[in-house]
Amino acid sequence: MQLKCVAIDDEPLALQIIEKYVAEYPALTLVNTFEDAISGGEYLKRNKVDVLFIDINMPDITGIDLVKSLEDKPMIIFTTAYKNYAYEGYELEAVDYLLKPINNMRFGAAVQKAIGYYQYKHTDTSGEDDFLYVHSEYRLIKINIKDIEYIESMQDYIKIHTLGASKPILTLMPLKNAIEKLPSAKFIRIHRSFVVARDQIRSIHNRKVKLTEVELPVGTNYTDFIKDWHK
């Protein structure tokens, strides 16, 4: 596996740092760097790459606007000197955001996410995946399927409730799409707004599913699940 990378940043020092860090990963090849977003954008429209390291704040065009203009988007790792990111960046499904000055360890974590996600998208497997990837809080998150207790639909978003977590993972994804990513033998839809892990069900009573700490309603169109569960 060899991932082609491009870096775009109007700060030459930032490009030097990225070039140095990329060289430490045999799976990455830095094919080009650009100090202005317009030249970098033209290159990306003519050449396919796997990973794009791009600054958000640049004088001619922002990194977010450049990424929006690309029809065939590579995996995006934004770099920025600002802690607050524009909300629009959320929908661009970036792999990660790196805060400047970028340290080697944090860079490495972003790269491993990109490598893992690439393998997830491009490797054929005969069995079911043990994890899934979602975009949340401006970055890509890997979730072990065995840790999912239930998923809650909120219109265009879903909340993924995982075991032992203090808060759910919120991501822009219809519940239908999430169901398609889950092994059907391990998860069951009990309501138009809820999907639960079968092995997390403790009891069912009066059309209420009891998990460890919560009770969820069983929808009218999903009552057949109760009969199957009692078998």
Rank of each mutant, 00 (worst) to 15 (best):
I169P: 00
H161P: 00
N144T: 06
L132C: 11
Y157M: 03
I141Y: 03
Y117W: 13
I143K: 11
I143M: 08
I143N: 10
Q119A: 06
D147V: 00
T162P: 02
A110N: 02
Y97Q: 06
G108Q: 10
T162A: 01
Y138N: 14
Y133L: 03
N104A: 14
Y97K: 05
E128C: 03
K146T: 10
A109M: 13
E137V: 05
Y117S: 05
F107P: 01
K100A: 04
A109K: 15
Q119W: 05
A165E: 13
E93A: 15
L163N: 11
S126C: 02
Q155K: 14
Y118A: 06
S153P: 04
I115M: 13
L92Q: 10
I148M: 08
H122W: 08
D156A: 01
N104C: 06
Y150T: 10
R106W: 08
K100Q: 09
Y120H: 15
D130L: 06
F107V: 10
A114S: 13
Q119M: 08
G108W: 09
G108R: 10
D147N: 14
E128Y: 05
I158L: 04
L132N: 07
D96C: 09
T125H: 12
P101H: 13
K121Y: 00
E93T: 10
S126E: 12
I148F: 07
L140S: 11
K142R: 15
E152S: 10
P168R: 01
K146C: 02
Y133H: 06
L99H: 11
I145Q: 08
L140T: 07
I145D: 12
I102E: 10
L99D: 11
Y118P: 01
K159N: 13
K146R: 11
E152L: 04
P168K: 01
K100E: 11
V111A: 08
D124K: 14
I115W: 12
S153M: 07
F131M: 03
L163E: 13
E93S: 14
L98H: 08
G116M: 04
K167H: 11
I151R: 05
N103E: 13
N144I: 00
D129K: 13
Q112L: 15
E152W: 03
A109T: 07
M154G: 00
A94W: 01
D129F: 02
L92C: 06
G116C: 04
Y150Q: 08
A109E: 15
P168V: 01
R139H: 14
G127T: 06
I148T: 04
M154F: 04
I151V: 15
V95W: 02
T162H: 00
I148C: 07
D130G: 14
H135S: 15
Q112K: 15
Y133I: 01
E149C: 04
D130S: 14
Y157D: 03
K146E: 12
M154Q: 10
